[in-house]
């Protein structure tokens, strides 16, 4: 079952510069900053109520995030729903015939995650996330 918006992903050119608005002006606290090497991205989660804003800075123009930045510039990237069972959620999604990107959940910044294909969801890139027990905020 999907319980809430876990985060909204935003692609930025420079994380430190982005803090100047999202952290310093809006007042959102930075909860986690991590580099995900296999995705060539450094990401920060900033808390806003029960949800978070995920700022994504690509580390190369070859990564998915880097290509997005080169093609579309900074901006909204994806919408992540939280679930307490990402395996079951993904299986149920596939059983409905909904096209997915990840056939199996994988480890990401928000825990165990998977992405659905935006062609199936009205152009919205949707992610499911099951936070790891020690990383629930």
């Amino acid at each position: 079952m999907l319980s809430k918006i876990h985060h909204v992903g935003v692609v930025v050119r420079d994380l430190e510069q982005a803090y100047g608005f999202w952290r310093d002006v809006l007042g959102l606290p930075v909860m986690v900053v991590k580099t995900v090497v296999d995705q060539d991205v450094t990401a920060a989660l900033l808390k806003v109520g029960e949800s978070e804003i995920e700022l994504l800075q690509p580390l190369s123009d070859r990564s998915g995030i880097g290509k997005f930045l080169a093609k579309r510039g900074e901006g909204l990237h994806h919408l992540c729903f939280e679930t307490d069972d990402v395996d079951a959620e993904l299986a149920a999604t596939k059983a409905k015939g909904i096209r997915v990107i990840d056939e199996k959940p994988r480890l990401g910044l928000a825990g165990m995650i998977c992405f659905l294909h935006p062609a199936a969801t009205r152009g919205v890139l949707v992610e499911y996330a099951q936070p790891l027990a020690e990383e629930r905020h």
Partner: peptide, 14 residues
């Protein structure tokens, strides 16, 4: 500024 929560996101569509 005290920013409390996400109220909504908007999906544009025809």
């Amino acid at each position: 500024m005290e920013t409390r929560r996400i109220d909504h996101v908007v999906v544009v569509t025809p």
